[in-house]
């Protein structure tokens, strides 16, 4: 139990961030885009206007 807690503490300490760390590759050609092509962060938003 203590060991499990210790490991947990270390993982949290090392900054394991949010749950979603799986990364999807989304094709971007032909979609409306704002901002530089080589921006550090790309946000793809799937939307429904209604």
């Amino acid at each position: 139990m203590k060991k499990a807690l210790f490991i947990l503490f270390i993982s949290l300490f090392l900054g394991q961030a949010s749950a979603e760390t799986k990364r999807f590759t989304i094709p971007l050609e032909g979609s409306p885009s704002l901002g530089p092509q080589d921006a550090l962060v790309t946000i793809v938003e799937f939307i429904d206007y209604q």
């Binding site: 885009s33 901002g35 962060v41 946000i43 938003e45 429904d48 209604q50």
Partner: peptide, 28 residues
Amino acid sequence: MAAGPAVEKIVKEYGNKVRLVIKFYPYK
């Protein structure tokens, strides 16, 4: 739905650090 205000705020705050791409997913 689209996340209007939150995303607008992000774009405003981060400027050229972010690129926003829109894809359409209309509910039938």
